[in-house]
Simulated scan of single mutants.
Amino acid sequence: MFSYRHAFHAGNHADVLKHTTLIALMKYLTQKDTALTVIDTHAGAGLYRLDGDYTETSGEAQEGIFRLLSEPKAAAAPVKKAPAATKTAAAGGAKPAAAPGWAPALQDYIDLLRGLNPQFAETGDIAHLKIYPGSPFIEQQFLSGRDKLKLFELHPTDFKSLSGNIEQLGVGRQVAVSREDGFEALKTFLPPPARRAMVLCDPSYEMKSDYGRVATCMADAVKRFATGTYVVWYPIIPRPEAHDLPRKLKTLAVKAGRSWLNAALTVKSSKLTTDTTGEVIRPGLPASGMFVINPPHTLKAELQAALPQMVALLGQDRNAGFTLEHGG
């Protein structure tokens, strides 16, 4: 049950999508004067070392944040405009061209990384990009004194790391860390006192039951507090449960009469290949998605600008592309 450690995956392409989206959400939701409650059901360790043993062992950050930042970004033609609902890789597998400079949502993401890595900010040298924030640190960056952040993490080692990392922030009672099952603990915080909340549900999916638990948890949350913003990250892998989850969330949102947005980023083929010796090579995680119930009205346009750049810079083969759907 506790085999998954996000430290192996920190800064990968899924984190680029997840955290760019999360920053856009937090930036919008914290603009209002009314207090916001943010609940992170599977918080992880909070901070990660990109030069640590876990990250260097997996190499996933090299195909994620390091690849994003090492590619020329000011070169080519403007990003091709996406249709109103959906955009995929260009015909024939060509990558969409990157826009001059960063899309605003990606710029915000990179600026946050610079804030945590002063030497990287000063020099621009990605060799100095060593600290990577998990969702708890991203969420806390945007909170005002009136807002609250509830973090849940069951893994004993990650819970200990999370508690220590949050303590270093010196934010007192603004952030609460609990070693509890986030799926179950969420129920006790909805509806929130000030009637404004954002929930991030980002389990490991190491157990097939997680897919069903996410759908059930979100259905219960929307029933308890219909106007909250609910954010679900999910992997896109050759497993029926993975493909069923966004469909279930869409059905849930439609039945509840709530707006929704689904953004998915594919960086490579999901097919198994073989090396010269006939050994099977597994592709790792080829794609992931972010499903948002009650998204801000600004989110679609922000991701429409950012996703083509993610494909152009993170795509590894002709299967790279993205979809962006919304409704309600």
Rank of each mutant, 00 (worst) to 15 (best):
L261T: 09
D33M: 00
D53N: 09
L285D: 04
F137P: 00
K80G: 14
G170V: 02
L265S: 04
L154Y: 08
A89L: 15
I65R: 07
K130F: 01
W233Y: 14
P238M: 13
Y109D: 13
W260Q: 03
V16M: 11
Y28Q: 14
A127I: 00
G145C: 03
F322S: 11
P286R: 04
E139I: 13
Q119T: 12
P193D: 09
K150A: 05
P100R: 11
S163P: 00
A91L: 15
D210E: 09
G289M: 06
A84Y: 10
P235D: 10
V231K: 02
Q174T: 05
A7H: 06
A242E: 05
P136H: 06
R179G: 06
T30Y: 03
D202N: 10
G228D: 09
H13N: 02
R49V: 04
G321H: 10
I166W: 12
G134Y: 10
T251Q: 14
L314N: 09
N165V: 07
F183I: 01
K32W: 04
L143Y: 08
V231W: 04
T55I: 05
K27C: 00
G257I: 11
P286N: 04
Y28P: 00
G284R: 06
A105R: 12
Y54N: 14
L47I: 11
M198I: 14
A74Y: 08
L112M: 05
T277R: 13
L106T: 11
F142M: 05
Y54K: 15
L113E: 06
F137V: 10
P100N: 07
L303W: 11
S70Q: 14
H6S: 03
Q174A: 07
R318W: 05
T34L: 12
H128A: 10
Y132K: 01
N294H: 08
A35Q: 10
Y205F: 15
A7F: 03
T20E: 07
A219P: 07
Q316W: 00
A76W: 10
E122S: 07
P203C: 10
G278I: 00
V79D: 09
Q31F: 00
H9M: 03
G115E: 05
K208R: 14
R67D: 09
D147T: 07
A121Q: 11
T276M: 09
Y234I: 00
L261N: 09
R146H: 10
L307S: 09
R224N: 03
L299I: 04
S70H: 04
D33K: 12
L149Y: 06
P192V: 12
D125C: 02
L190E: 11
Y48W: 13
I166E: 13
V254Y: 05
D210K: 03
P193S: 10
A306D: 11
G46M: 00
L22A: 09
E325Q: 14
L47T: 11
A221P: 01
A76K: 12
L29I: 03
W233N: 13
D15G: 01
G284T: 03
P133K: 04
A301I: 04
K187C: 00
H6V: 03
E122W: 02
G172I: 08
L149E: 06
L314T: 06
F66P: 10
A7R: 08
G134V: 02
W233D: 08
F120A: 05
T157R: 12
T34F: 02
V177Q: 13
R49M: 07
G134R: 12
D158L: 01
Y230P: 04
L249D: 10
A89N: 14
K27D: 14
A97Q: 12
I281G: 01
F291K: 11
T55G: 13
G92H: 12
E279R: 10
A91G: 05
